[in-house]
Amino acid sequence: MRSAASFPIRDSLLPVVGVVVLVLLWYAAIAAKLVDPVLLPSPWETMKAMWTGVADGTLLHDFLRTVERTILATLIAMVLAIPLGIVLGSWPRLYLALEFVIDFFRSTPASAMFPLFLVVFGVGDETKILVATFGAALVILFNVAYGVMNARKNRLLAAKVMGASRARILFEVTLLESLPQTFVGLRNGVSLALVIVVVAEMFIGSADGLGHRVFEAQQLLQMPDMYAAIFAAGALGYCLNLLFQVAERRLVHWSGK
């Protein structure tokens, strides 16, 4: 019997199966008239709307604005949360003192913070970026601190026995040991930042972005444009997550060893 490794081409095509099934189910729902045709355009109409939006620059502009806000929010969250997570993870008593506050705000839906951020920062890009930063930073902070606190004790003890200083142990052992969990936080953080940015673009006085495009198209019953923007947002989220996965495989190649 031939092993699964003998069929690399078939394995590489497996992800396409899900896409084909989705498209077939979509066409089946239209043929069976399960949904009003006005509300559910065909995949072809949706792809045509996406191509038109990219060609004339409107969808591409909104896509790039959402990318800009999401990446900026994630970068700010990383700069704030990673050092703080390392500090909290290195001093468990300090983390315990702040654990309730961190978990409380981490469990609070970021959308519930919109009114507060609007009052403080007003309507504008700053509010969208900062509320996304807030949500992403808490997720990253928790994962970094957890990774530092759960660094392998035998490696820490080995470094101490060999006479390594506290600073060297922190940066050359603890920090590296925490990277797998840190990347878990980064993937979750960028996904959450994208969700918050898209929702903020819908409801916080935005003139562009994928969220604004989805909301405007829905209000005008331009359903192909709405679905095109939704799929563009989904593709963006998938690509951002994939980017961090590739970076993790290259930078944390020792994970699990």
Rank of each mutant, 00 (worst) to 15 (best):
F7N: 06
V199I: 12
L40V: 02
D125G: 00
Y146E: 05
P115Y: 00
N188M: 13
V173N: 07
G122P: 12
L210C: 03
D125I: 11
L186Y: 14
W51L: 12
Q218H: 10
F231I: 04
T66E: 03
I102G: 08
F231N: 06
A235R: 01
S3F: 05
F171K: 02
L84C: 07
T133R: 05
S6T: 05
S3V: 01
F100N: 04
D125S: 14
L156T: 05
M113Y: 02
Q245V: 12
A77N: 04
S165I: 13
T74L: 13
L98I: 07
G53Y: 11
M162C: 10
A247N: 08
R187F: 13
Q181D: 12
A29H: 01
E99L: 12
L13M: 11
F203C: 03
A233P: 05
T174Y: 07
V101F: 11
V21R: 00
G89N: 01
S42Y: 11
L39R: 10
L59E: 02
L88S: 08
G189A: 04
A4Q: 08
L13Q: 04
G85V: 03
S42L: 10
K128L: 08
S178P: 14
R93K: 10
V87F: 15
T52M: 15
V101A: 12
T58A: 10
D36A: 09
I230Q: 04
L141V: 06
T66G: 01
R65Q: 08
D56Y: 13
T58G: 09
M226V: 03
A49S: 12
D11L: 15
P43W: 09
V16C: 13
V161M: 15
L175K: 00
